[in-house]
Design a protein around this nucleic acid. Structure first.
Lengths: 350, 350
DNA sequence: GCGCTAAATGTTTACGTAAACATCGGTGTC
DNA sequence: GACACCGATGTTTACGTAAACATTTAGCGC
């Protein structure tokens, strides 16, 4: 067991600073700084000597001091409502990977629930922790009544929401995806497409629903009422029972794969064949979707690209920080129809 | 469009510092510091005045300066191999939430692949960024050949691995879970339980496999060879085709839900009934597991508790940093059998 | 060889905070 | 009423870095 004195010594054996390296290499600490930051105006021999000393002493730059001095943290904050959805997880993964590439770290700020209080808390925690920019992954309207005090001038990119013109927005092309799904079913010969929608509080859900409706209208079909779920398999199951009980339903477009899965379970329970009696299309392309029974036809979102774009847009803003804050873009990432075995042409009516 | 001068002014309108607040409130900056840190030895009236000034000026403490001065960052690092598994996502969610409770931020360090190079890179990025402690979520043996230079003395907690006695380890009780799954099947009357295992490079997988084997032996049954997969539905599907083709197979324990799902798809394709012909048990309890067809009997892991325990252990180490570094514990989180409809008693042989 | 330029390096300083120490009243004790 | 003491507040200083400025040295044209 360590004595107090012992621990004190342990603590004292702190990380070496630039000064230590400089002394070891026989140069000034400013030269060490230049080497550390890769400035060009250092003699090759000197640089090598400094690097050797860094190695020898196990020098690591102190990010706090660096941030204090330079005002840059090389860190971006990510505010997320929940990590529990497939899409958010994939997006976060892409963001973190892409940020690491650019030599940025990612600070994760979870928002437990979508109350104003919690969101404000996240923002304030964020502005205390040092970040150079923020990516907000919202699916709600909360940015509208923007009571939030984001530190003014802090670069922001929003994913999965439409925050008007105030911020740069990156998002999957929800409308395009919903159109692909609906047209795929129409193309197979279905005369009508029913829709299990996501919650009306979600922008992506609303976009998908609107696009489904528009696509039907463009095809001269009067859209039936949408059935609103909450993304869960359970809600898909509930609506699946309703739709499966009707003879005139031959095609269902669910706003995500989970609800599609729940609907398919309901259809199984009702003894309806998928796709023989009813075709089902999902949205997302979960890892497991190709192993559902039957393997699910769905719309693949390119979460990786969304994350990449978000980082790219954000870092571009960070670099030009203070020069042209008003330049907010809207980046749209395309979707892809993945055809599997849950869709087929409708049976010819007897 | 902003002029250069304009932007300069914008930049100049920087965040107020303690000095500004102090001047505004007519006190010394040290008093502001005391208020900011909640020290008790400040007069109530003074404190109120300072807080008012903070509000008026929109003061936010500068974390870089604070960290530089105090040596504490109020940040913990999380090193993860991948965010793309259900378990890791849930664990991360719990860690982030729990950390926020304790007023800590989470810095996410992704490791693209499990090469020594990348892991070292993550560690070095980590030690440059300031963190007070690290949670490592590994499933591989990499910690053994610990070439890695974690900053000495940095508190570490490892999840999902067994890193010997060097670190505190928090993990799901893999052995218990596998035993529950196997005994559930035996209890239903199955005479043999086949196992679709996770990769041998994964500690959790190995634990589950060993426990399955031991449970069978304890029941006086000679375990059949395990079929090794890679966690993916695809590998589950492959082994499902093999097992489904044999008449003597009535019960399958898959090491995770995805492989169970893949196996069930294979069984469907072969026309075998689940659970009529063959019972299937998974491991994890994905959100969707209760909507698989049939709803999957599985072992639920309490990822939330794992995250909570990890944070708790880590913060406890952080607080006693330097006093008793050698106190490494092993925390085990229990599992729970969730019985659904993919398991049943075996059909009586004709 | 003179001065000029540019490259390499050193010196000074400030970033915002909090610990350590200093000061100044007031309060209780005998 | 002198003294010690304590609580509230101010003053000084250092944390590790990098920008700004200063200095030295080498190279080069004339």
């Amino acid at each position: 067991m360590a004595t107090t004195e012992g621990t004190h010594v342990t603590r004292k054996a702190a990380r070496p600073s630039m000064g230590d390296v400089a002394r070891h290499a026989g140069v000034s600490s400013q030269t060490v700084s230049r080497v550390s930051n890769g400035h060009s105006n250092v003699d090759a021999a000197t640089r090598a000597r400094v690097i050797d000393s860094m190695r020898a002493l196990g020098y690591r730059p102190n990010s706090a001091a660096r941030a204090l001095r330079s005002g840059r943290f090389r860190t971006i904050g990510v505010i997320m409502f929940t990590l529990r959805t497939f899409g958010n997880m994939r997006t976060l993964d892409a963001i973190a990977t892409e940020a690491a590439h650019a030599n940025y770290s990612v600070m994760l700020i979870p928002v437990v629930d979508a109350t104003l209080e919690h969101v404000s808390g996240a923002f304030s925690r964020l502005s205390e922790q040092g970040v150079d920019g923020v990516i907000i992954v919202f699916e709600a309207h909360l940015l509208d009544n923007a009571e939030f005090t984001l530190p003014p001038g802090l670069p922001v990119v929003v994913i999965d929401s439409n925050a008007g013109d105030e911020y740069t927005v990156v998002d999957t092309d929800q409308a395009e995806g919903a159109r692909q799904a609906t047209e795929h079913l129409l193309g197979l010969g279905h005369r009508q497409v029913w829709h299990i929608a996501g919650p009306e509080s979600s922008f992506s859900a609303v976009h998908r629903t609107e696009s489904w409706r528009r696509t039907l209208k463009d095809a001269g079909i009067e859209p039936p009422p949408a059935l609103y779920g909450d993304w869960s398999t359970e809600s898909g199951h509930r609506h699946g029972l309703t739709l499966g009980g009707r003879d005139d339903v031959t095609a269902i477009f669910a706003a995500n794969d989970q609800m599609a899965l729940g609907a398919m379970r309901a259809l199984h329970e009702l003894g309806r064949d998928v796709p023989g009696d009813i075709s089902v299309v999902g949205f997302d392309d979960l890892e497991e979707a190709h192993s559902f029974w039957p393997p699910l036809t769905t719309i693949r979102q390119d979460f990786g690209e969304v994350g990449r774009q978000a980082i790219q847009q954000l870092l571009c803003k960070v670099d030009e920080y203070g020069f042209d804050d008003e330049d907010n873009r809207r980046v749209t990432v395309p979707t892809r129809l993945i055809v599997r075995e849950s869709t087929a042409s409708p049976r010819v009516r007897s």
